[in-house]
Design a protein around this nucleic acid. Structure first.
Lengths: 304, 304
DNA sequence: CGTTACACAAACGACTGCTTATACTTCGTG
DNA sequence: CACGAAGTATAAGCAGTCGTTTGTGTAACG
């Protein structure tokens, strides 16, 4: 049966293109690699290389194996990583990844609640936005991911390994300076603002905003794009433009001269917690989820 | 890094439930297995089992690994098998799997043509029907699969590894004894036969037939089901019922008292050759496909 | 309370697998 | 064209791995 050591060596040989280079990289000597590859060929009863004096070429069998070996090694590493993750979780160490504004509001609230009742749970915090954060979850980099999706994105992939738990739905709000002509209006339709200038947030938020404007029948003039929420508010207050942001972004920092109005037509951002289906029943993850749900309920009620 | 030998041993321990049983099955002694598992735990820095005197239980880490180890081993074996398949193909040995009636008509014609011009190609023939045959292709059991699908099945999965090459479309025919009241009619609508008694073929053919009747507005009374085409004809000639079969089935054996009429509304069976996308360019497979295409053309023209 | 079945520990031996040393081939270059 | 550089193959030596043997500890069962 194919053994992993030889597979790793083979992959390195394929990548570097020579036994000697692979040996240098792996910390073997050249004859060691040569013998390993010979043994691999003996195991498989196939010639993998055609030795052409200096430099070597993969045979067709070699190509066939080379095409798979990457995936095989990745799967082995992933299995190792899963076991390590379970060990961590059993020790009460949970890796949580959230997007920036959740890391400023929802997650700290949940963590403080968690800390007050489960002293034996240790949290490692990471910051990333979907879909990178969800890829990290599948790769085994995180145990819990706090992500979001907008109305017009597929409701819940729910495909494969991921389990999605809804945390809260927050409305998008229209932000403007208190000196803006529309600052006293109670309701503003997005379509009224087709000639306005805009400040946009992170890449996905910007895309969502462009979609909303398209639905309202215009293409927005976006002058400034930044993923710094404080900066967005500063620009808006300075009168450089309007912004459409999730409501949560003003719960942790709100400029005194900022005015926020409900966006019409209404659009919502759905904040979710996502875990792997194969999550073991260690309790630590469940407690984190429970705390997130509780914090989300409090955030929701504070704003309704 | 996880090495395969220990993984196989681990999988066997998990399956059998004890070190000793795994040792017996693998041809080791019990302490050998015990040491391997200890080494595996050391590699992973995790305890995989909770030793409970006699008999042992998997820890959560053990469960996590157990859930993946099967797939890992299967992937390793599959990679081995791919390399072996390439070796076989380079020696000109092609494994062809077809469904029964193709094995009686299309495949022999193609093989005889192939034999006459490429003496260095050796064919191994297998018989299976889709979807089993296609699963065998993905598993690496075959190199070329001759399969079929009916009109109402998804046109071509074309997903993942499989590449589908159309060979021929054959119409379904209505078979009856020459003494049947409708034997002199030139055309018969399926809907006219809602009270007839029926002989059905293989499982998928039977399903296709039931679907056809459902489209025509009735549920057929099927008295006999057999995947033996000769038997179907015999029952039909004996007056025990009618049958709807692909036309090809009467090209290799046709009872003299059998009458076949075009089925109305027309339904067709699509015969295809399927190979793996990652097929190496050995030529042998290409020649087999080419022969199958040629034989299919001849069969088509002989019947139009 | 002994028997049985199993896991664990230690000692031993064989074999695997890496290293060093050396020879051979090819390619590039002065 | 000859020589050096770079690469692979082979041989020999040596060490560590791995499986067996042998013996001990422990939990379940009659």
């Amino acid at each position: 049966m194919l053994d992993t050591q030889k597979l790793v060596t083979f992959a390195t040989v394929v990548r570097t293109g020579s036994f000697a280079a692979a040996a240098r990289e792996l910390g073997y000597t050249q004859p060691g690699v040569s013998q390993q590859m010979k043994a691999l060929e003996r195991d498989l009863r196939a010639t993998l290389f055609s030795r052409a004096g200096r430099g070597l070429k993969l045979s067709e069998e070699g190509e066939a194996l080379a095409g798979r070996v990457g995936g095989l090694i990745a799967d082995l590493r992933a299995a190792e990583e899963r076991v390590a993750a379970v060990s961590r979780l059993k020790q009460g160490r949970v890796r949580v990844c959230a997007f920036p504004s959740a890391n400023a509001t929802l997650v700290p609230a949940a963590m403080s609640r968690l800390r007050s009742r489960h002293v034996n749970i240790e949290i490692e915090l990471f910051e990333a936005e979907p879909p990178e954060s969800l890829e990290g979850l599948e790769r085994g980099d995180y145990d819990v991911v706090v992500a979001f999706r907008y109305d017009d994105q597929p409701p819940a992939p729910e495909v494969g390994e991921l389990v999605t738990i809804p945390l809260l739905d927050e409305p998008m709000v229209l932000m403007m300076s208190d000196e803006h002509p529309l600052a006293r209006r109670k309701q503003v339709e997005l379509a009224e603002l087709d000639t306005a200038r805009w400040i946009a947030g992170c890449v996905r938020c910007r895309q969502e905003f462009v979609n909303a404007c398209a639905d309202a029948g215009f293409a927005p003039r976006i002058d400034i794009t930044t993923d710094d929420n404080l900066a967005v508010q500063s620009y808006v207050v300075a009168g450089l433009g309007l912004a459409v942001m999730p409501r949560m972004t003003q719960s942790f920092v709100k400029h005194p001269k900022l005015r926020a109005k409900p966006l019409l037509p209404e659009r919502r951002r759905h904040v979710t917690a996502t875990i792997l289906r194969s999550q073991p029943k260690t309790g630590a993850v469940e407690r984190v989820i429970e705390s997130l749900l509780h914090a989300a309920r409090e955030l929701n009620s504070a704003y309704i």
